[in-house]
């Protein structure tokens, strides 16, 4: 503002100097009567002071009693209304914020719950699987055991058969070739040989 203010005084300055230097002299020369600078004609001072004061007082009364209170009222009312609106906006915003927080909390809770449920199910599932694996494993082991037993039995049976055959063969061979038919001795001999082999 100041910058503009100052720039605007430039042309005035020159004219003012002319006015102040040249005109008063002229005015004084003519004794403040007609023809001089009217501003320096002291005869007009009384009326100008009088009317200036009277009209200013009138203006002051009109403004302070009538005009300004009315404008002030309107402005106040508007100000109140705007303040109220702003407060309401603020309040609504706070409510919204609370709702958002509430919603977020609910969401987080739901998420945590879901996680829990899922991990629980996972645990259950893996436990069941392990159990089942165990069972199957046990059943298999049992089956293998019986099968092994059966095989062992079959083997033993087969070995007995082989021994008998061997004793028969040996006894027959001895009998035919040598003429000895001591079955007891042959059996023990075969048993010995088989024991050595085994």
């Amino acid at each position: 503002m100041t910058e503009h203010l100052k720039a605007f005084f430039r042309p005035h300055f020159a004219v003012l100097m002319v006015a102040l230097l040249a005109l008063p002299g002229q005015a004084f020369a003519e004794g403040g009567e007609e023809g001089g600078l009217p501003q320096l004609n002291t005869h007009t001072y009384g009326t100008q002071i009088f009317w200036g004061l009277v009209l200013f007082v009138v203006l002051y009364l009109l403004m302070s009693r009538v005009a300004l209170p009315r404008v002030g009222e309107v402005l106040e009312e508007r100000s109140k209304r705007i303040t109220g609106d702003l407060e309401r906006a603020q309040q609504l915003r706070a409510e919204t914020e609370a709702l958002v927080v509430y919603y977020e909390e609910g969401l987080a809770k739901a998420r945590a719950h879901a996680g829990q449920v899922i991990s629980g199910v996972n645990h259950e599932l893996s436990a069941a699987t392990n159990h089942r694996l165990d069972e199957v494993g046990k059943a298999l082991a049992k089956k293998i055991e019986t099968a092994e037993k059966r095989i062992a039995k079959a083997q033993a049976e087969a070995m007995g058969e082989v021994r008998n055959v061997a004793v028969d063969v040996a006894a027959t061979v001895l009998d035919k070739l040598v003429g000895i038919s001591d079955r007891e001795q042959v059996t023990s001999a075969v048993d010995r040989v088989m024991g050595e082999r085994a």
Partner: peptide, 12 residues
């Protein structure tokens, strides 16, 4: 009393 209503007063 020299308190004429003048053009000055009129414009005031």
């Amino acid at each position: 009393l020299g308190l004429d209503y003048t053009n000055s007063a009129l414009w005031m």
